[in-house]
Computed example of a mutant assay.
Amino acid sequence: MRDLMNSIHPLRAISPQAAVTDNTALVSQIIDVRGYDSLTFVILSGGLTDPNATFSVLVEHGSDSGLSDAAAVADDDLLGTEALAGMTYADDNETRKIGYVGSKRYVRLTVTPSGNDSGNVFVSAVAVLGHPRMFPTPNPPV
């Protein structure tokens, strides 16, 4: 059976919001991976209008629920790279993804614009938890 729905648990990471018109970092919700063996962040861009803007990606993890112990995730604990998950102004209306396979319980994503001096930036992200230890996953996700 080709059932992906009951095997994933999508969560809000970075909510759709009004355009960012400066270089303020967009920081995701802290994602608790307990009960799941995989996490992929899906990053969505809308219009990216500043011709100098770039968008870097950082994935952090830790054991504290508030991520007071946050540390950058080592490359060995990522699927894909933070560089490949980043964007430039030319990547209007595109998606990127980066996976986490580390052992920490809490993870967050940060997308940081630079050179966004005069543009409007629309970026959001979804955290997709997968490989659940209990099936099916709840619907709607909680």
Score class of each variant (00 low, 15 high):
Ala125Asn: 05
Gly62Glu: 13
Gly62Leu: 09
Lys97Arg: 10
Leu26Gln: 15
Asn116Trp: 04
Val73Ala: 01
His131Pro: 01
Ser7Glu: 08
Pro140Tyr: 07
His61Val: 05
Ala70Val: 07
Tyr36Pro: 04
Thr21Leu: 05
Arg105Ala: 13
Asp3Ala: 15
Ser15His: 04
Ser103Asn: 07
Val121Arg: 01
Thr137Glu: 10
Asp76Tyr: 07
Ile8His: 04
Asn120Phe: 03
Thr54Leu: 09
Thr137Trp: 15
Val111Trp: 05
Gln29Lys: 08
Ala72Tyr: 04
Tyr100Glu: 08
Phe41Ile: 03
Pro113Leu: 02
Ala25Pro: 14
Leu129Tyr: 13
Ala90Tyr: 08
Leu26Arg: 11
Tyr106Glu: 04
Pro138Lys: 13
Ala125Trp: 00
Leu48His: 12
Val33Gln: 06
Leu39Met: 09
Arg96Val: 06
Thr24Gln: 13
Pro138Ser: 10
Pro138Asp: 04
Gly102Ser: 13
Ser124Tyr: 07
Ala127His: 01
Asn52Tyr: 14
Leu26Pro: 06
Leu11Ala: 04
Val42Asn: 01
Leu58Ser: 09
Tyr100Arg: 09
Phe122Asp: 12
Val101Ser: 13
Ser7Asp: 08
Ala71Tyr: 00
Met1Thr: 07
Thr24Glu: 03
Tyr36Lys: 03
Lys104Gln: 13
Asp117Lys: 03
Thr95Val: 08
Val128Gly: 06
Val121Pro: 00
Thr137Leu: 14
Gly115Asp: 02
Thr81Val: 08
Ala83Lys: 12
Lys97Phe: 11
Leu44Cys: 08
Ser118Leu: 08
Leu67His: 06
Asp92Gly: 04
Thr21Ala: 09
Val27Tyr: 02
Val128Arg: 12
Leu84Met: 10
Gly62Ser: 09
Pro132Val: 08
Gly115Leu: 01
Gln17Val: 01
Asp69Lys: 01
Phe55Asn: 00
Val27Phe: 01
Ala72Arg: 14
Leu48Trp: 03
Val73Glu: 00
Tyr106Trp: 11
Ala74Asn: 05
Asn120Gln: 14
Gly102Asn: 12
Asn116Asp: 05
Gly35Tyr: 12
Thr81Glu: 03
Asp22Ala: 02
Val128Leu: 12
Gly62Asp: 11
Asn52Gly: 15
Pro16Trp: 03
Pro141Gly: 05
Asp64His: 00
Ala19Asn: 07
Ile30His: 07
Arg133Thr: 12
Met134Ile: 15
Gln17Ala: 12
Val27Ile: 15
Gln29Ser: 14
Thr110Trp: 00
Asp77Ser: 09
Val121Asn: 00
Gln17Ser: 12
Asp117Val: 09
Val142Lys: 00
Val73Asn: 03
Ile31Thr: 10
Ala85Arg: 00
Ile14Phe: 04
Pro16Asp: 13
Val107Leu: 03
Asp69Ile: 00
Gly66Tyr: 09
Met87Val: 00
Leu26Val: 14
Ser114Val: 02
Asp64Asn: 06
Arg12Asp: 11
Met1Arg: 09
Ala85Pro: 06
Ser63Tyr: 10
Leu26Ser: 11
Ala71Met: 11
Asp75Arg: 13
Gly35Arg: 10
Leu11Cys: 01
Pro141Trp: 04
Tyr36Ile: 07
Leu58Trp: 00
Arg12Leu: 11
His61Ala: 15
Ile8Glu: 06
Ala13Gln: 06
Arg96Phe: 07
Asp50Ala: 03
Ser68Arg: 07
Tyr100Gln: 09
Val59His: 04
Thr21Met: 12
Pro132Lys: 04
Gly99Leu: 10
Ile8Asn: 06
Pro113Glu: 00
Leu79Ala: 13
His61Met: 08
Asp37Asn: 14
Thr110Asp: 02
Met134Ser: 15
Leu79Trp: 09
